[in-house]
């Protein structure tokens, strides 16, 4: 149902030559350590992402996946390290970065409609005091259209299902027209149809040269959906093209001795082979 084509095409012409300096990595994290209350949860993270890839961040609960994204976006303070987005500090490149937080992070009873939420994706570029105008509404409606939610534009967000809420968050990020997107578990609690719709959308974004980083929990699908992968558990266990990184060895190092997960991983590997 999701048809991102039009939006992304339009976005591509809009931001045309915006940032593409072929040599600069969309994301470059150097030596980053993050701590909550002096207890480090991420150690010495070094990452460089190639341009225009779909990257999965994989790791057990509490591995620090959300923290990684929040630290990159300066939402939690870094104890050390530096983050470059297309070669410059994040603070200067905010407009190039889109973010989809975990769905539970907001109060869905808040008195706003789906359209209101999507419009918030424009606030960053609007500047102080200005209200979103006709053009912004148009863009927001188009983003909703692209995620198949335009009929629900005027619903209060509590009256949407979990999958629909996730689509609204997606639309809010799309309407921002960013170059690099960070998505925290966009597949959590959505059905197969919504999942494949989101994957379709991710692929279109990639086809348009966008870089997307996704926290993903499903080892069964990770090698099919993503071409790049970061295995994380307090530190980066491995990162690189999915084909190189997605090995039982690496998974064991990431998930430790959790047997059920290892079984799941082994299952996933078999599954992958059959598919290929």
């Amino acid at each position: 149902m999701i048809t991102p084509e039009r939006d992304v095409q339009q976005a591509a012409t809009e931001s045309g030559a915006a940032v593409k300096k072929a040599a600069v990595a969309p994301l470059d994290v150097h030596d980053m350590t993050v701590a909550y209350h002096r207890r480090p949860v991420l150690w010495d993270v070094d990452l460089t992402l190639p341009d225009g890839c779909l990257t999965a961040v994989v790791g057990p609960n509490g591995a620090g996946k959300s923290t990684l994204i929040k630290a990159i976006l300066s939402l939690v303070p870094k104890a050390s390290g530096r983050v470059l987005i297309y070669g410059k500090p994040y603070e200067q490149q905010r407009h190039l970065v889109g973010y989809i937080p975990q769905r539970e992070s907001v109060d869905w009873d808040f008195p706003v409609s789906a359209l209101d939420v999507v419009l918030m994706g424009r606030y960053g570029r609007l500047g102080w005091f200005r209200r979103p105008g006709k053009h912004d509404r148009q863009a927001a409606l188009e983003a909703l259209e692209n995620v198949g939610m335009v009929d629900f534009a005027h619903r209060q967000i509590a009256q949407l299902s979990g999958g629909q809420q996730q689509r609204v968050f997606l639309a809010r990020a799309l309407v921002q027209d960013a170059q690099i997107y960070f998505m925290d578990e966009p597949f959590a609690g959505v059905d197969a149809a919504t999942e494949s719709a989101i994957v379709e959308l991710l692929r279109t974004l990639r086809a348009r040269g966008r870089t997307v980083v996704v926290v993903h929990h499903d080892l069964q699908t990770v090698d099919r959906y993503f071409d790049h992968m970061i295995l994380l558990n307090m530190r980066v266990v491995a990162d690189g093209p999915t084909g190189d990184v997605f090995t039982p060895e690496n998974l064991r190092n990431t998930y430790g001795g959790r047997l059920t997960l290892l079984d799941e991983a082994a299952e996933a590997m078999r599954h992958g082979r059959v598919d290929a």
């Binding site: 976006l73 937080p101 109060d107």
Partner: peptide, 12 residues
């Protein structure tokens, strides 16, 4: 009020 973190990511 709706989403403090997202607002922050937007540069507010």
């Amino acid at each position: 009020s709706f989403d403090r973190e997202y607002a922050s990511a937007q540069g507010l």
